[in-house]
């Protein structure tokens, strides 16, 4: 079914640049979006780390040396915090975005959540073993 399109005269309200400061939920949302800059930095930093390792002992030492600068420490700490936050919220979202069925029954959200943390722990343990022990 279709409605005949007749444009209705109306008043178009403008959305101000600072629309997100008036409401707590919008503010938190924009903050979360901004936090992705830190997350992106964290990824770049990780790549730099890998490059340094590949570049030999001297470059690795230089990398470690720079890593102790207060500015980098703060930036990385903030980055890590946001990364943890995003991991937690992403995990929390999974049961909403996915409906898993096992044997015809819906897997409860808590079980999916738990499975993700278990998987995270296993992968972390493996990487720890890879880096430190092997």
């Amino acid at each position: 079914m279709s409605a005949p399109v007749t444009r209705v005269p109306s008043y178009q309200r403008r959305i101000g640049v600072f629309w997100w400061v008036h409401k707590r939920s919008y503010f938190l949302f924009v903050m979360r979006e901004l936090s992705s800059i830190f997350v992106a930095w964290f990824v770049v930093y990780l790549l730099m780390f890998v490059a340094a390792v590949a570049g030999g002992q001297q470059r690795y030492d230089e990398f470690l040396d720079r890593a102790t600068s207060p500015l980098l420490l703060v930036v990385n700490a903030v980055g890590l915090a946001f990364l943890v936050l995003h991991t937690v919220t992403w995990f929390a979202l999974t049961p909403k975005a996915m409906v898993l069925r096992l044997g015809g029954r819906r897997v409860p959200g808590t079980a999916m959540l738990a499975a993700q943390y278990v998987a995270l722990a296993v992968v972390s343990a493996f990487i720890y073993w890879l880096v430190v022990k092997a």
Partner: peptide
Amino acid sequence: CTFVGECTSVCPKHVDPAGAIQRYKL
């Protein structure tokens, strides 16, 4: 959708559109 989640919190009938959108993204 950038997952603000407000659609779900204001819904008077508890429909959870945000959840629907995330499922679609998947």
